[in-house]
Structure formats: structure tokens, C-alpha cells
């Protein structure tokens, strides 16, 4: 250990003995717990703004291509299941609620309540990914995943496809039918990036459940739970826009 560090350490020790009291979680470069919480909250929001720009680019691409290749986007969106998408929306909105309740439990120093809320949020998140897996596997089965094996069958010959037939789709010209691949590219890019955010969130939730059981967030220091809550709600908001834009607006 370098000498200067040792001196700083011992000076720190002396200061603590001399009545420089503060909670263990308050970093020394902050004046107060409140200032530390405000700064961390601000940083989290700045990160979320970069995320808004990231997903915003995808939404803009979707908006422009949907206007260019409108018939292809309408027919391709008929391939998505509204019951499954709607059910996933319920799961995600409820998980946002349980997360918000988790933040409340942490603030009220209710340890078991916090653990319960985090576990429920984790289960609802996993449920969402489970339903997404069912939806994705159906796309693989029907060769609706953009690739060399992409199949135009549902769009050139809608009577052969249950979903297309139910929506009353008319056979499409080949050059327009080919643009359904653009829809599915954007579908997989947007829902895939959203699912990746969910997976990262679920991993952090798992970590938080262990820490919460050890009482880490119920001793007055709730910043981590609060900021994770912001992230989780942001992911919820992305889905609130994805669901109508991908599943609903071309349905009637």
C-alpha cells in the first residue's frame, strides 16, 4: 500500500472517530445522502434518454417503411397473435406494478414484502419471455424469419395460411410480398432488443433478490432498487408502444 493511501486511510479513521459520522453508503465526494440520491437519479435518467434515442431510431425506421410498403406491412402484421401479444402486455404492466410496489416496500423498510415483489416481478418477466418464445417458434416454423429460407407462401397464397385467411388477405404481387421480409426484420429487431433488455433486467433482478434477502435495500438506502425500477418501467413503456404498432394498427 502506498504511503499516501495509508495516510489517507488513517486520516479517514481518525475523522470517523472524531465524530465525522455518516451512513456507510454515503460516498465521500457527496455532501449528503440526498445529494447522492439526486445525482444517481439524474445519471439514471440520462442513461434512459440514450435508450429512448436507441429505440427511437427503430421506431422511426418502422414508421417510414410502413408508409412505403403499406400493403406488405398490413399483411405481415396479420401473422401476429393479438391474444398472445395482449396477454404479454398484461404480464408486463403487472410486473411494472409489482416493481413499483417493491420500491415502496424498500422505502417502508419491509424486507419480506420487497423480496416477494422482486420475485413476482421476476416470474412475470420470465412469463413474458416464455410467451415470446412461443411466438418466435411459430415464426420459425412458418419460415417468417428473414433469411435465405424466408417463405412468401402466406402472402402469395393467403388461402393456404390460417392467419392470413382469417384476416381476409388477398394474394399479393410478388414485389410487394417480398417486402413482408422488411416487416419481420423490424419485428425481430424491435422485439428482440426489447427481449434482450428484459433478459438483462431479469438477471439484475436475480442479483437483487439475494441482496434484498440479506437486507441490503431495507436499511434506508433504496437508490439501487429505485433506479432499477426506472429501468424496468422504461422497458415496459417500450412494449406499450411496440404492442399497438406491431400487432394492432393494421388489424381492422
Amino acid at each position: 500500500m502506498p504511503d499516501s493511501h495509508a495516510i489517507a486511510e488513517s486520516a479517514h479513521e481518525t475523522a470517523h472517530q472524531a465524530g465525522h459520522e455518516h451512513p456507510s453508503y454515503l460516498r465521500h465526494h457527496f455532501e449528503s445522502v440526498e445529494q447522492q440520491a439526486d445525482a444517481t437519479n439524474f445519471a439514471m435518467w440520462l442513461f434512459l434518454l440514450t435508450e429512448v434515442m436507441f429505440f427511437g431510431g427503430l421506431f422511426t425506421a418502422y414508421l417510414i417503411y410502413r408508409n412505403w410498403y403499406y400493403p406488405a406491412f398490413v399483411a405481415a402484421s396479420h401473422q401476429l397473435s393479438i391474444p398472445l401479444g395482449g396477454f404479454n402486455t398484461l404480464l408486463l404492466i403487472t410486473s411494472s406494478f409489482t416493481m413499483a410496489m417493491g420500491v415502496w416496500c424498500a422505502e417502508m423498510k419491509k424486507k419480506s414484502g420487497l423480496v416477494l415483489c422482486l420475485v413476482l416481478t421476476l416470474i412475470l418477466g420470465l412469463g413474458f419471455l416464455g410467451v415470446k418464445t412461443i411466438e418466435y417458434s411459430e415464426k420459425f416454423e412458418k419460415h417468417h424469419v428473414p433469411s435465405y429460407h424466408y417463405s412468401l407462401n402466406s402472402f402469395l397464397n393467403p388461402d393456404s395460411d390460417e392467419a392470413a385467411k382469417a384476416s381476409g388477405d388477398k394474394p399479393m404481387a410478388l414485389d410487394m410480398a417480398r417486402h413482408t421480409e422488411v416487416y419481420f426484420s423490424l419485428y425481430f429487431a424491435m422485439t428482440g432488443m426489447h427481449a434482450l433488455h428484459m433478459i438483462i433486467g431479469i438477471a439484475i433482478l436475480g442479483f437483487m433478490i439475494f441482496r434484498a434477502q440479506a437486507g441490503a435495500y431495507t436499511s434506508g438506502h433504496v437508490t439501487f432498487v429505485e433506479n432499477f425500477g426506472l429501468y424496468w418501467h422504461f422497458v415496459d413503456i417500450v412494449w406499450i408502444f411496440l404492442f399497438p404498432l406491431l400487432y394492432l394498427i393494421s388489424r381492422h
Binding site: 411494472s96 406499450i240 399497438p244
Partner: peptide, 23 residues
């Protein structure tokens, strides 16, 4: 009006989440 209504509802929902869930 279909996409406009869908987006209006989505914006309302997102505003509620930002104002209350995100404090």
C-alpha cells in the same frame, strides 16, 4: 384514425407510467 387512436392511448399509458411509476 386507427393508428392515431392507438398512439394516443399508448402515449397516455406511457405518461402515466413516467409520472407515477417512475415518480
Amino acid at each position: 384514425l386507427n393508428p392515431i387512436i392507438a398512439l394516443a392511448i399508448a402515449c397516455t399509458k406511457a405518461t402515466l407510467v413516467v409520472l407515477f411509476f417512475m415518480h
